[in-house]
Design a protein around this nucleic acid. Structure first.
Lengths: 291, 291
DNA sequence: CTTGTTAGTGAGGTTTTTGCACATGAGGAG
DNA sequence: CTCCTCATGTGCAAAAACCTCACTAACAAG
């Protein structure tokens, strides 16, 4: 079989299954379902014309041919894996990232650890900054912002759509629960200096009036702490509270409404694969966040 | 980078390009266009965060990182390739195939060489036979027939749709060319004993009448020889004359009309991967034939 | 006989890859 | 310079590969 048509992915699935003994485990290793592994192996048996596994379904036995084949595959894949990892670790470079303050605290920094694991030699130098993007004057490699990206100024990749909604601590939910916006009247509404009209705009969308009398905080971060302490309800972008909602620390009784703005990562054109690797890592994380 | 997410196909494309020096050649080796290779490599640079090629577009230079990475990849892939080939060569078995006479001569046998190259240890024992398929009484592993397959009796895979049309040698085309069925009047129409009504059925489809006066041959094969010698025109299934038309030995002025029948490969259920390998090889060849 | 574990599969959807045609950029000839 | 050729880059649409889901099948253990 010519090298060009080697079914590499199927071979990897087979190698993994043979090494681990169960399709189940192989599926985990490959990050897919076992149905997928099953298909890959069946396909491989077909293209090679070799029976690879015998025995009852709940206890697979590799055939002799499989046993003879596996060691070389394991060796070959190991070799490739090592070489790739080595190459990745030799590439060092510093990436300067400018990111919205709250987003970096509540989304980016917690996830950066993963990036570091994958690209140990790429250092991320993070600056928090909410101002407009200007690559000519600033020396950032990547800038993460929210709004409508400027097509003319820089390359960019969309990360997620901005969506906001009221959040509050489950501890201060009124007895009757919260089923319509008016139920929020009993709860203090908290504000930030930077987006004073957050509640008003939301009220317009859902067609309600609510008293605008709660305390005003310097930063979104402090307001969120207050909300979690049960001091009131806040209008929050989904990305910034996603983790808290998943953990049950906050609830969002009316979900989140899209604002039409987007979070995006801007970067200079043709700035090299490390930057692109970082940006596509951002996209990957964003994709995971959406689900 | 975990083994499960190694971009194996991209790595293969890169290895090939680095080894051969040009994407062009790598594309040939992999059996794709260079656009595909270009994308694979660009994607690899992105996921690894490494610049792999430098220099002007018409003379790529691998970077240092690439040069360090390649040897291990080459070695790993070589190892895998060898192991797979060895495993395939150890699997010997004889497959008994029953095939329509003319089809085996004009389609299957010319292509079997390719199968032999890929599966050196699988022997194909070929019998020509036009009768109905009965696996219970006959000891074939695979039967290739034309008609409507019997879903209840056997497993099968469709190969191609039957389509027939008039063919003749370009040497005997009348001066005015052949643009409508009536132009065939000047040419003797040849027949076979096994499908005497071939011309009549076609005339019905295209709504013409033609004189039925040409010579009758014992076998399709002889008739085709006569056609190529310029003795007249014959009604021929497309698969059987495809190669001749491509080579310019025959022309088919009115194309081919589908008859509603299909060529198919029948085999016993669960007869093992060698049989399945053969059948999917048949399908692959059939797919190529269609284009 | 029921339950739990593991694999196989049909249908359907999503992602990835590819081919095509055109664009781009480098080097060389005139 | 400008034009030409060569090799790669890329937008788009189509095709292929791959995956998930939900369900089924086979076997083992209780």
């Amino acid at each position: 079989m010519r090298r060009g048509v080697l079914p590499l992915n199927a071979l990897r699935a087979f190698e993994s299954t043979a090494r681990l003994g169960r399709m189940r485990d192989a599926a985990d290793e490959l990050g897919v379902t076992y149905g997928a592994v099953s298909r890959q192996i069946r396909g491989l048996e077909k293209t090679l014309g070799i029976v690879l596994f015998d025995g009852p379904k709940n206890k697979l036995e590799p055939t002799e041919a499989a046993l003879r084949l596996v060691p070389a595959l394991t060796y070959g894949f190991d070799r490739i894996e090592q070489a790739v990892n080595k190459a990745m670790q030799e590439e060092d470079r510093i990436i300067d990232v400018s990111c919205l303050g709250t987003l970096s605290m509540r989304w980016l920094i917690p996830r950066l650890y993963d990036f570091h694991t994958r690209f140990p030699k790429i250092d991320i130098r993070l600056t928090t900054d909410d101002g407009p993007v200007n690559f000519a004057k600033q020396h950032f490699d990547v800038a993460i912002r929210v709004g409508n990206p400027d097509f003319a100024e820089y390359e960019f990749e969309l990360l997620f759509d901005d969506a906001v909604g009221p959040v509050l601590s489950p501890q201060i939910t009124p007895d009757g629960g919260i089923s319509q916006p008016d139920d929020l009247r009993e709860i203090p509404l908290l504000h930030t200096k930077t987006r004073k009209d957050a509640w008003a705009s939301w009220c317009e969308i859902v067609d309600t009036k609510l008293p605008v009398d709660g305390r005003e905080y310097e930063h979104f971060y402090f307001m969120l702490e207050a909300v979690m302490a049960g001091l009131g309800a806040a209008m929050a972008p989904w990305v910034l509270v996603r983790d808290d909602i998943e953990a049950g620390r906050l609830i969002a009784p009316f979900g989140f409404k899209e604002t039409g703005l987007s979070y995006f990562a801007a970067y200079r054109p043709r700035s090299g694969p490390q930057i692109e690797a970082f940006v596509s890592w951002l996209q990957e994380q964003a994709r995971k966040t959406k689900r």
